[in-house]
Design a protein around this nucleic acid. Sequence first.
DNA 1: TCTCGCCAAGTCAACGTTGTCTCAGCGTCG
DNA 2: CGACGCTGAGACAACGTTGACTTGGCGAGA
Lengths: 352, 352
Amino acid sequence: MTQGEAPPRSTRSRPTMREVAALAGVAIKTVSRVFNGVPTVDPAIVARVREAADQLGYRPNLTASSLRRGDGRTSTIGMLVEDAANPFSAALTRTVENVARERGVLVLVGSVDEDPARERELAQALVDRRVDGLVIVPAGRDQSYLISEQRSGTRMVFVDREAGLLDADAVVSDNRQGAVTAVNHLLKAGHRRIAYLGDRASIPTAAQRFAGYRHALEVAHLTYEDEIVQHVPASEEAAVTATKRLLELPDPPTALFTSQNLVTIGALRALRALGLQDAVAHVGFDDFPLADILNPGISVIAQNVEEVGRTAAEMLFRRLDGDESPTRTVTVPTRLIERGSGEIPAEGPRHD
Amino acid sequence: MTQGEAPPRSTRSRPTMREVAALAGVAIKTVSRVFNGVPTVDPAIVARVREAADQLGYRPNLTASSLRRGDGRTSTIGMLVEDAANPFSAALTRTVENVARERGVLVLVGSVDEDPARERELAQALVDRRVDGLVIVPAGRDQSYLISEQRSGTRMVFVDREAGLLDADAVVSDNRQGAVTAVNHLLKAGHRRIAYLGDRASIPTAAQRFAGYRHALEVAHLTYEDEIVQHVPASEEAAVTATKRLLELPDPPTALFTSQNLVTIGALRALRALGLQDAVAHVGFDDFPLADILNPGISVIAQNVEEVGRTAAEMLFRRLDGDESPTRTVTVPTRLIERGSGEIPAEGPRHD
DNA sequence: TCTCGCCAAGTCAACGTTGTCTCAGCGTCG
DNA sequence: CGACGCTGAGACAACGTTGACTTGGCGAGA
């Protein structure tokens, strides 16, 4: 810990247009014109105003400006994600930020932690700051509390999951089809006893992935067995326990479909702990860093996070630009990445 | 892609206090008092105002309120990180958000991408929105452009790296000592030829870690050899190439100290590609997910990101609460995590 | 009974900016 | 040479809210 030298700083209050105007010897309105790039101001005056502003360290107050301006735009949008620290949310935030950046718009971020009450509080806090729009990964199943905001002109786009009880734009991954692809891939490797391990079924995305799993089994004329299906809270620990339980069954599954990131990682920890990583096939939903470097590499259904985020942001800005067309839900396809774990055949690893 | 049904929404403008007051039959000021929890308002009137507000879907305008209020606080802070999508930045953002949340403060996030010009632009954009304070992971080495802001009362705390040409609070990891620990650990395993692979030396944290490396060698009376030192841009590809170059030397190093996240991952990819992961010892700076599940597990010097973020946020809020003490730099210790790769002895893996 | 003080509720102006309107000065054209 | 249009700059009010002050009604004490 180092000591600095500075004594308490003089909190001289921030200069305003009034002071700049006084120093430059012009009217406030003229300063306003200069900073808004109005072309009809005498170049000599522009120079004088700029000089005065620099001298005082003047910076326009966007807050005041947005209050007075007709459209009331704040050049700020709000973004609610599940948890700013997790890779999916972080990647999403970054792509939205990239699109916003091009328009000089900043992003207010909030982590909802799968808590509907928190979602609502944060959404209100964003609205209270008069953000121009919202990008929301909803936690709850009821967003009707936003109806009045929507009517008041706040544009919003939902991501990863659609809004409930609210008609709004959304961008989602093709969860169901992704799950079908995963299961079909395991079927192709000869598996007939494929376990499902996923997030609680109350989470819409988990429900869709689970539906895909059931559908694929049905098409393959396999009977669904409750015994090899586990819905657990999305945490590594819970997934480790659940995986072990599955693999210690009298008639254990020969393949595993894990429908969420942390669940996938928990499952692969459990497989390794049991020394079964080369014996039990495994496909996870959602890619994760270093999945390719493990042994075997983990085959996954990868979401196109960048496209999801970019599409959502672009839809939002199109709305802000006046697009009044009917609301849409855009579905972004997923992609199977084969890395080894999903290609382990039913009879166990090949030894020929 | 699904079609919604909603026709263009009626953009009725947002209700204001005036309208609430009219509906409740009271003066605007009374509505203001109700929403600010002033206790001297007749409970019957409070009820009437609240009802009117609910009926209209009224939400106070924090923007206007902050403009009028004496302190001008916006209950918003700005945060500049290297890249919102990388795990270090994301974790930092999240801890700062957690502290802010307790005070009803929201966080505006911007990614600087190691670009000093971008850092400056974003800082200005945040100041223009009159954030109450800034948490900055600086990209450039000169933050003197913030002196006038500081004087105008914007509080700021720097994270991960100290500010340049500006007297301000900072919270940093003990980079130098962490590097010393890493190298000492490798020395203890018998290594005498330890390579350094790190981010460009122009990045202050990289420079400190490099200094730690040199210092540890010196204390151990080992001569510094330029041949086994590489400064590369922080990317996996660059690190892969550099690592291969090091290991293909006539007299290759028996141990590797990688001083940055992506560099560490690049190095371990290269080690695996060459089949040397069990022969060459390796300690990385910065922990990363799944480091423990690899084979061998990757030993690292872990930064305490949570403590760094929390400390920074707490310092910022203490300043906002009126703390005028001299500026400080808080150094947060790092911690060695042994997982296998760093304990490989100098003569190669044991075969006894 | 009258004055005084008290307290709840209201009026007014102001935060920093910009939209609208006005005005002064200048060049042009009949 | 005078009316007119034009152009550039200023005056004024307003955005939605709150700080400072005022008002009015009521109870208490002399």
